[in-house]
């Protein structure tokens, strides 16, 4: 009985670690996919990357359901269980947003002027770094709650960075001779990318509260 109980706890811990690893992988996959699109357009390589992120997303969904089920069997304190499930749900939404944004690229195929591609790549860096920092903060929440805030301030830093880049990018887009429809289309894709770092910041705020509750 005890061995079974401890075995289940071990599996639950491993599942949570795997879930966070998937989020990290999705962030890298997303970055790679967008860079591929910027360099090669909607190529076969881009589709491969998109599929990879899609797979990660569905594995993350399955894993979250397993974790949810095991959490109830584990009889954790309801408050802790509630916080953990809410956190995993918010992180899962981030993975969904990676996939969703890539689907927009795949279906709408935006025409990004060559001189702006570097700006889009520059926008990707703080966005993925923001999610990476969030993954680190989440790992700390599970193992060393006192260090959560050390990672969370990085999330806020990268989010601000992304905001600055998109501000500049939008000015550039709207000062070109492109048609209004094209300008709006380009802005939309920049905003889809920043949407991820904005969401990561929202999750970071939630995580901060969960961490304060644990360390109080």
């Amino acid at each position: 009985m005890a061995i079974k109980l401890f075995g289940r706890t071990r599996r639950l811990m491993d599942d949570i670690d795997d879930f966070l690893a998937l989020l990290s992988e999705s962030a890298i996959g997303f970055q790679e996919a967008v860079i591929t699109y910027l360099d090669q357009g909607a190529s076969e390589r881009f589709d491969e990357r998109l599929n990879q992120v899609g797979e990660s997303e569905s594995r993350a969904d399955d894993l979250r359901r397993t974790i949810q089920r095991d959490m109830y069997a584990e009889m954790l304190m309801p408050d802790t269980r509630g916080d953990i499930l809410k956190l995993l749900e918010s992180l899962d939404e981030l993975i969904n947003k990676f996939e969703e944004t890539l689907w927009y690229f795949s279906s709408e195929k935006p025409q990004i002027p060559e001189d702006m591609r570097e700006d889009y790549k520059e926008l990707l860096i703080p966005t993925t770094a923001c999610v990476e920092a969030l993954v680190m903060a989440s790992r700390s929440f599970f193992r060393d709650v006192e260090t959560v805030s050390d990672h969370l301030h990085k999330v806020h830093y990268y989010e601000k960075e992304a905001d600055q880049v998109i501000g500049r990018l939008k000015n550039d887009v709207f000062s070109t001779d492109l048609s209004l429809a094209e300008k709006i289309h380009l802005r939309f894709f920049a905003e889809r990318i920043v949407w991820i770092s904005d969401s990561a910041e929202d999750v970071a705020d939630e995580l901060m509260i969960f961490a304060i509750k644990r360390s109080a």
């Binding site: 639950l12 584990e74 009889m75 954790l76 304190m77 953990i84 599970f142 644990r214």
Partner: peptide
């Protein structure tokens, strides 16, 4: 708890 970096899930079941 800090030294052992005990996972929140394990810590919770031990606390229980």
């Amino acid at each position: 708890v800090r030294w052992g970096k005990i996972h929140i899930v394990r810590l919770d079941s031990w606390t229980r």
